[in-house]
Amino acid sequence: MSSVLERLSTAVIAGDAENSVKLVHRALDKGMDPKDILDNGLVPGMDEVGIRFRRGDMFVPEVLMSADTMSAGLDILRPLLAAAGTQLIGTVVLGTVKGDLHDIGKNLVGMMAEGAGFEVIDIGFNVPPERFIDAIKEHQPNIIGMSAMLTTTMRAMGHTIRAIEEAGLRDKVKIIVGGAPVDAEFATRITADGYGSNAPSAVELCKSLASAS
């Protein structure tokens, strides 16, 4: 029988939330350190999911189920980690920009970022620049993620970045953008720090930006 932590990784890869919750409890019962359970059980499972996704062996719905499974395990560990003073890898504030009512893509990024171990604050859709600014002040995130589904609303991303600059907060956060009409060139033009072409790549981007910050 493989170790509890190996089985936990396997449960994350399989998207088996029920089993992952049981295994996290089992590991805690055995006296394991919550940080050890996170770093050597949940995270390696999610890392393997990322590898398989990039290789084309796993697909978006499976990755989302794995992210959900990771979150279910993390929910149990989070208060214990906080009590021990252990930091999560970062905080991400997500919103769909002003004028845009689409939120599926943004929600997928949120689920997967949570699965990757981020604290995710979702401020919804049709979000004006001032609400992004308020969220930076309130939650002090490492990363702001903005989404737009329409060519007509993508320019609101640039306006929002400008407003964050004017509020003197630009150096406090990394800003990433995504959504159907957006591409890397547009992201550069509006001085965003990064662009994710899909939910898994957006989360990879969050991880690299969070570790660099």
Binding site: G56, F59, V60, P61, L108, A199
Partner: peptide
């Protein structure tokens, strides 16, 4: 359909 690799 949504492509299950790229989500496009």
């Amino acid at each position: 359909s949504m492509d299950m690799r790229t989500s496009g």
